[in-house]
Computed example of a mutant assay.
Amino acid sequence: MKTVTRTGVGPLLRDWRERRRVSQLELALRADSSARHISFVETGRSRPSEDLLLRLAEHLDVPVRDRNALLLAAGYAPRYAETALDDPALHTLRAGLEQILVGYEPYPALVVDGVYTVIAANRGIAMLLEGIPEHVLAPPLNAMRVTLHPEGLAPRIRNLPAWRRHLLHQMERQIALSRSDALRAVYEEVAAYPAPASRGGSGDPGGDGGAHGGPSEPGGAFPYPYFALPMVLEHRGRTLSFVSSISTFNTPMDVTVAELAIETFLPADPATADQLRSLSG
């Protein structure tokens, strides 16, 4: 029986199990194994089979990139490729993403990777970024950076305190799940940007001034009852309100594809929809 060192797969597997707050017995039941065998794997007394390791990773919802790390630590070859986006093998994927972005116009939509680097964006996004200094838009463009930077979209976002909290909390959840050092570096950068003062009041959806931090009542400065926290921003003297939706690929078999996400911005009220159609005309 091969002994796995303390720097091998055992400590990594235990770390993922503890992060997911799953007991050895519960994980064993899920993966059709035994708590004793999982204990032996975690302590280095036993080397898991490749099949078992992949089942454990699946039931612990380990990201695809980190599944490769588990396999390598156990002495196996990586299972998942990491294909560059400009590789001919991903031509169909790129074409499909472009079709989605164009089809969503005039509403904004973009594709980002695991650290929010913008891979592609449509004309709706370009419209929102009009007037932002070039140094903020310098490649590689990062969606979190351009949104929260004091010279980016931040001064235009009318409910910036609430939207900033939402974005930072979103990144915190992702860091807890993925343990990505690169994502943590982005988080630490944007979290250090000057925190805005809350405007408060009934006209600030999700702001700090309302009793519940929710949207305003009909008839106030924002007359529509929002169904999710909106991003409310000023553009060309008009007020635009969006709710965002993020889509990822189901059961990806490539690290690059697994870390892609499509974020679309849906008009949160009829006025915004009308204004976007007008602006794109």
Results as ranks from 00 to 15, higher is better:
2 K>N: 05
3 T>E: 12
3 T>H: 10
3 T>Y: 11
5 T>I: 00
17 R>H: 05
20 R>C: 08
22 V>R: 10
28 A>E: 11
29 L>T: 07
41 V>R: 07
47 R>N: 06
48 P>I: 02
48 P>S: 08
52 L>A: 15
53 L>N: 07
53 L>V: 06
54 L>I: 01
55 R>Y: 00
60 L>H: 04
62 V>P: 00
64 V>D: 00
65 R>T: 01
66 D>H: 08
68 N>P: 00
68 N>I: 00
69 A>T: 09
69 A>V: 10
71 L>M: 00
73 A>N: 03
75 G>Y: 05
77 A>F: 01
77 A>M: 09
80 Y>C: 00
80 Y>K: 00
84 A>H: 07
84 A>S: 09
86 D>T: 06
86 D>G: 10
90 L>T: 05
90 L>W: 08
94 R>T: 10
97 L>M: 09
97 L>A: 04
98 E>H: 13
98 E>T: 05
103 G>M: 04
109 A>W: 01
110 L>G: 03
110 L>S: 06
114 G>F: 05
115 V>C: 14
116 Y>N: 13
116 Y>G: 02
123 R>W: 00
124 G>L: 03
125 I>G: 03
131 G>W: 05
131 G>F: 06
138 A>R: 15
139 P>M: 13
143 A>T: 01
143 A>N: 07
143 A>H: 08
144 M>R: 05
144 M>V: 06
145 R>K: 11
147 T>G: 09
148 L>H: 07
148 L>E: 09
157 I>D: 02
157 I>W: 06
157 I>F: 05
165 R>C: 05
166 H>V: 02
166 H>M: 14
169 H>P: 02
169 H>A: 14
173 R>A: 12
173 R>K: 15
177 L>Y: 04
178 S>R: 15
179 R>N: 11
180 S>K: 07
182 A>C: 05
182 A>Y: 03
186 V>N: 05
188 E>S: 12
189 E>T: 10
189 E>C: 11
197 A>H: 03
198 S>I: 02
202 S>L: 12
206 G>F: 05
207 G>F: 01
208 D>P: 04
211 A>Q: 13
211 A>L: 15
213 G>V: 04
215 P>M: 10
221 A>Y: 03
222 F>M: 14
226 Y>M: 13
228 A>M: 11
228 A>H: 11
228 A>W: 08
232 V>N: 01
233 L>A: 08
234 E>G: 11
235 H>R: 10
236 R>L: 12
236 R>E: 15
237 G>K: 09
240 L>V: 06
241 S>Y: 01
243 V>I: 15
245 S>M: 12
246 I>H: 09
247 S>T: 07
251 T>K: 12
251 T>N: 11
252 P>V: 02
253 M>A: 14
255 V>S: 00
258 A>Q: 01
259 E>A: 12
262 I>M: 11
264 T>G: 10
264 T>R: 04
265 F>G: 00
265 F>K: 04
266 L>Q: 08
269 D>L: 09
273 A>E: 14
275 Q>E: 10
275 Q>Y: 07
275 Q>N: 02
276 L>C: 02
276 L>V: 02
277 R>K: 13
